[in-house]
């Protein structure tokens, strides 16, 4: 296989792995609070949906964009569509970071590139 082809295959495989992790494996993620959430809610009790007590999280504010369509990794609030939200997130990240890094890169001097990805 040529170097260019090998490069393309590698990049494609990397992208597929990311899409499968976000689109499928994300359904098996642990739904418990993460370490930061757990520690910042210690010392509070939840009363009628609001945290009461001395813990830091009692001061947490709702997210300014909490009503946006993909908020909390759902689609329109439907967490059955977490996988779709994840796929859209992977694509959005790829577009933003890919565009940023491609524009920042040092262009190859020969003008020809033998190992370019997709």
């Amino acid at each position: 296989m040529s170097a260019a082809k090998r490069g393309a295959w590698f990049f494609a495989a990397f992208a597929v792995v990311a899409l499968v992790l976000a689109g499928v494996v994300s359904y098996f993620a642990d739904g418990d609070p993460d370490g930061l959430d757990h520690v910042t809610t210690r010392g509070c009790t939840e009363i009628e949906g609001r945290l009461q007590g001395a813990c830091p999280a009692a001061h947490a504010e709702d997210h300014a964009l909490a009503d946006s369509p993909l908020a909390d990794y759902t689609v329109g609030g439907d967490d059955g569509l977490t996988g779709l939200a994840g796929v859209l997130g992977v694509l959005a990240t790829l577009v933003v970071s890919g565009g940023l890094f491609w524009s920042l890169r040092t262009r190859s001097r020969s003008g020809r590139d033998t190992s370019r990805g997709p």
Binding site: A18, L21, G99, F101
Partner: peptide, 30 residues
């Protein structure tokens, strides 16, 4: 460069994907 820029884009996308995958570390904590 032309080789590492596409990889860097994919690494960011991969990090986004894996950040969604909470794993258990203690009872009730991920």
């Amino acid at each position: 460069d032309d080789r590492t820029a596409p990889l860097a884009g994919l690494v960011a996308a991969f990090v986004f994907a894996v950040q969604m995958l909470n794993f258990p570390v203690l009872p009730g904590v991920s």
